[in-house]
Each structure stands twice: as C-alpha cells, then as structure tokens.
Simulated scan of single mutants.
Amino acid sequence: MLSTRSTEIVRATLPAVGGAIGEIAPLFYEKLFAAHPGLLRDLFNRGNQASGTQQQALAGAIAAFATALVEHPETRPDAMLSRIAHKHVSLGISPDQYPVVRRHLFEAIAEVLGDAVTEEVAAAWDEVYWLMANALIALEARLYEQAGTAAGDVFRPYRVTGRLAETAEVTTYLVQPLDGGPLPASRPGQYVSVQVQLADGARQIRQYSLSGRPDDALQFSVKRVTGEPDGEVSHHLHDRLAVGDTLMVSAPAGDVALADGDAPVLLASAGIGCTPMTGMLSHLAATGSRRRVISVHADRSEASHAFRADLLQLTEKLPDAVAHVWYEEPEGAWPADRTGYADLSRIDIPAGTTAYLCGPLPFLRSVRAQLLDAGVAASGIHYEVFGPDLWLGQDG
C-alpha cells in the first residue's frame, strides 16, 4: 500500500506524469539501451521498439498501476501484475535488472518534467516503482519455483523433430529437449519463448503459443510477419529452421490458461490467435471433456485459416461442442451470415460461460463487448494478445 503522503503527491502529479508518459517511455528506452546495448540486441523485441508498441505498453502499465494505487488503495491490480510477471519469466528477467530499469526510468522522468520533479515528488514515485517492482519480483520468484528453474534460467536447448506447413504463412514446429529429459509442465493456452541467433549476432526472443498437445514434444506455431518492419524472427524460423536443428526454448508461461471445471467455455479467435485456442480445444478433446464448448473464429479466408481441419475434427470429438467460423473473403460458397466480422449476437451462449479470447486488439474489443451484451460476466472473459499488451490496465 502506498503511504498516505505519497498517495497525496502521486494523485496530484499523476496528470502531469500521465500526460508526459508518452515522452518519458521512449526516452527511458533510449537511455537504457545506450547504457546497456546488449538488452536491445538479446532481450527486447527490436521490432516492437521500432514500431513504438513496447513504449506504449510500458507507459500504459505505469499509468495504470499508479492510478490503481491512488484510486483503490486497499487492493492490488493482480491481474495486470500477473500478466507482466508471466512475460518476464518467459524472457528470463531476474531481480537484479529492476534497479537498472529504475535508474534510467527516473532519469527520463526528471529530464522530461524538469523542476517539477522535486525530491518529495521523486520519493513518492520511487515508492510507486518499488511497490510494483517488488510485487513482480515476488510473483516471478513463485513462477520460477514452479518451473523448477533458478531466476532468469528458463531456456533449454531443444531439437526440432517436426515441421508442418499449416498455411502459406503459418508453420508448426515440434521440439524435444536435447538432453532427452522430460518435457516441462504446461497448461493449455500458455506460450513458450523461442530464442534465435540472427545474422547480425543478435539473440532475439519471441513468444509463441503452444498449439497442440503431442505426448513427446512441445508444439508451437509461427506466422510469418510481414509489414513495416518484417518480423525478423518469424522470417528466420520459416526460412532457416529445419528438422534436426537446435533451438533455445523457455519453460511454458502465460496467465491465460484453460481452467478446469464443468462450466461452459467459449473460445474466440481471429487470425493466428487460433493457436492457443487450438491448444485448449486439443486438451478438451484429449481429456474427454463433456463441457459445453463454443468455438468462434474469424479469418481472412479458408486459405489463411490455420488449423481449420483441426477445428472441425476436434469439435466432432467432443460430445457437446460447436464451431462458428467467419471469413472476410470466402473463396467458395459460404453463408452470407458468416461473411465478414464475427457476430456473436445469434449464438446461444449459456449462463455461466467462461470465455477465452485471442486476436488483434480491435477483435478483442468487439468480441468482449458482444459477450458483455450477451450476459457473460466481465470476470469470466480472459484474453491473450500477441506482442506488447496495449490493452493492459484499460477497461476495454
């Protein structure tokens, strides 16, 4: 809990800090990478830095945490902290990195806000930082313990044992521990981090959802990312990673995982967001679940729809499951009411449904609103987003 005096100061200065956080975050990263260039080369996603999305995510998280401290002092934003902690553990973040971040962040705050950052103001925001940092360090310690690894030591060498083209843009990889040891425990819906060495020597890391549950391997799927800039890791994996190669893979992580129970479940995805949903559906089918399962997927066309056959086959294996699919550009005969964007208004969604969402942010916002309109409790709607979470801390 934030001290009374610091609460007053943070409340008074939050508009100024919040208003300037868009300047503070990029300056912080500039200072951090100037002092520690290896972090950009081997830890942070260079594509997200170039696009600015990582800066936006950091700014949103800091502002949301500070706002929560002053508006709801008796509670802690655990959902937001859990999301960040899982991502940190998947990257191998360790406690000794938090003082480094603090130093460069506060240098950026002081430079942007100037004389407004008095000793008293700096002390109050220092309290905010360490409340957040120490909460994350504690959460991450528990996650490392559950994974059976030391803090920061999450990567193991794996051998690629299978490669399958799902679509022209999506490839699935099967990997097994190089030492022949057991696979790490995972929950349906989680992801792994993959580290590759690129042509310039950088060791870049990306997260990919576990897209199935083979007995003797981890399975993840990668979409080739094209745009400004192209996805350097996805292109490397598609163009260079072959069966027999070795790959560094982290222990599974992720706070959006299918919960046990008998309640109805709705799995909604768009595009490559189908990967964690396929993992969840595979688990339900493999365990003989009798839950009511509703799958909703939206895609550009049949050709771009990865795991299309899996969706149909897994749905047929479940005794009480149904799949609804929308295509923006159908390639053949296709119902008019399933053309365009996903529309849940005519789907019968049972009371007590728990929903899991994955896809682009506009899709997540649209589907969440439709689920709320259908009577699904906000607490029962969980989402996963690839890349920096620009929804973090927002009401949606």
Score class of each variant (00 low, 15 high):
residue 2 L to S: 08
residue 2 L to M: 11
residue 7 T to P: 00
residue 7 T to V: 03
residue 10 V to G: 06
residue 10 V to M: 10
residue 10 V to P: 02
residue 11 R to Y: 04
residue 17 V to H: 01
residue 21 I to K: 08
residue 23 E to M: 13
residue 24 I to D: 06
residue 25 A to N: 02
residue 35 A to C: 06
residue 44 F to E: 01
residue 45 N to A: 11
residue 46 R to I: 01
residue 52 G to P: 05
residue 58 L to K: 03
residue 64 A to N: 04
residue 65 F to K: 04
residue 69 L to W: 11
residue 74 E to G: 12
residue 75 T to W: 04
residue 78 D to P: 00
residue 79 A to W: 08
residue 81 L to V: 14
residue 81 L to M: 15
residue 83 R to F: 10
residue 85 A to Q: 08
residue 87 K to G: 11
residue 87 K to V: 08
residue 88 H to T: 03
residue 91 L to D: 07
residue 96 D to R: 10
residue 97 Q to N: 05
residue 99 P to L: 06
residue 111 E to G: 01
residue 119 E to L: 10
residue 120 E to R: 12
residue 125 W to Q: 03
residue 131 L to S: 08
residue 132 M to S: 07
residue 133 A to P: 07
residue 138 A to I: 11
residue 152 G to W: 04
residue 156 R to N: 08
residue 157 P to F: 05
residue 160 V to S: 05
residue 167 T to Y: 04
residue 169 E to C: 03
residue 172 T to F: 04
residue 174 L to P: 01
residue 174 L to A: 14
residue 178 L to R: 01
residue 179 D to V: 04
residue 179 D to Y: 06
residue 180 G to S: 09
residue 181 G to E: 09
residue 184 P to R: 07
residue 185 A to I: 01
residue 187 R to T: 02
residue 195 Q to I: 12
residue 197 Q to P: 00
residue 198 L to I: 10
residue 210 L to K: 04
residue 213 R to A: 15
residue 218 L to Y: 03
residue 218 L to K: 07
residue 219 Q to P: 00
residue 229 P to T: 07
residue 234 S to C: 07
residue 234 S to P: 00
residue 242 A to S: 10
residue 246 T to P: 00
residue 249 V to C: 09
residue 256 V to M: 14
residue 257 A to H: 08
residue 264 P to D: 13
residue 264 P to C: 14
residue 267 L to A: 08
residue 268 A to N: 11
residue 269 S to H: 05
residue 277 M to A: 12
residue 279 G to I: 14
residue 279 G to V: 14
residue 283 H to Q: 12
residue 290 R to W: 10
residue 291 R to D: 05
residue 292 R to K: 13
residue 295 S to V: 09
residue 296 V to E: 02
residue 299 D to M: 11
residue 300 R to Y: 14
residue 301 S to Y: 05
residue 301 S to R: 07
residue 302 E to R: 12
residue 306 A to V: 09
residue 311 L to T: 15
residue 312 L to N: 12
residue 312 L to V: 13
residue 315 T to R: 10
residue 316 E to V: 00
residue 317 K to T: 07
residue 322 V to K: 12
residue 329 E to W: 02
residue 332 G to K: 06
residue 334 W to F: 08
residue 335 P to G: 07
residue 336 A to M: 06
residue 336 A to K: 06
residue 338 R to I: 01
residue 339 T to I: 10
residue 347 I to G: 02
residue 349 I to Y: 08
residue 356 Y to T: 01
residue 356 Y to E: 03
residue 361 L to Y: 04
residue 362 P to W: 04
residue 362 P to M: 03
residue 363 F to T: 02
residue 370 Q to C: 07
residue 383 Y to E: 11
residue 384 E to D: 15
residue 387 G to Y: 13
residue 395 D to N: 14
residue 395 D to L: 14
